[in-house]
């Protein structure tokens, strides 16, 4: 179980590295998709089907958007000197963040042990015990999303609304007509 999970995460990391290193934009988009779908399988292995469904859906849609957006676009390659500076900065960043990240792994609970075993008064226990009785929803993820933590969901919905609103405002038709007219003059 843990070995399969480790293999999946390793494949995810390899796909992510290919995304960064490949010079073809379409290959990069395809390997980003591989990262997303491998993550969805990882979520399924970690017993989180809700997250996996959202991950697959969002991945499909964003991959389609990325492919449609990148096809037919030119890619600008960095000059050699800039590339050397950029790569050294990137390596330094990865080294620093990796050093801190390894420290975090020591703090992780052991795989397969729920948080309630480590902290007896964890709020997760209350949700699990009284979730069905107080909300009437057998799917506890939805119970938390739409009942216990509905405020957060309102924030999420507002973020998505603002994203759509921003896209609509930036790409609105009247502004483009005005710009076109001034260009013609």
């Amino acid at each position: 179980m843990t070995e399969v999970l480790a293999l999946l995460i390793l494949l995810t990391v390899i796909a992510a590295i290919i995304t960064v290193l490949t010079s073809n934009l379409l290959y990069a988009v395809i390997s980003v998709g591989a990262v997303g779908f491998l993550l969805a399988i990882v979520y399924l292995f970690l017993a989180a089907p809700d997250v996996a469904i959202v991950q697959i859906g969002v991945e499909v849609v964003s991959l389609v958007i990325l492919i449609r957006a990148t096809l037919g676009r030119e890619v600008q390659q960095l000059k050699t000197v800039h590339a050397v500076v950029g790569v050294s900065f990137a390596v330094a960043f990865v080294a620093v963040i990796g050093l801190f990240g390894i420290q975090v792994f020591n703090q992780f609970p052991e795989f397969g042990i729920p948080v309630m075993e480590r902290f007896a008064d964890a709020p997760a226990l209350v949700y699990l015990q009284s979730g069905l009785a107080t909300t009437g929803a057998p799917n506890l993820v939805t119970a938390v999303l739409l009942d216990f933590r509905a405020w957060d969901t309102l924030g999420e919905a507002t973020v998505l609304f603002c994203a759509a609103l921003g896209t609509a405002v930036v790409l609105r038709r009247n502004a483009r007509i005005g710009r076109k007219k001034s260009e013609d003059k």
Binding site: A52, G57, A137, P138, V141, T142
Partner: peptide
Amino acid sequence: HITPGGGFG
């Protein structure tokens, strides 16, 4: 609210 899923997915 019964099976995995929901408004977002």
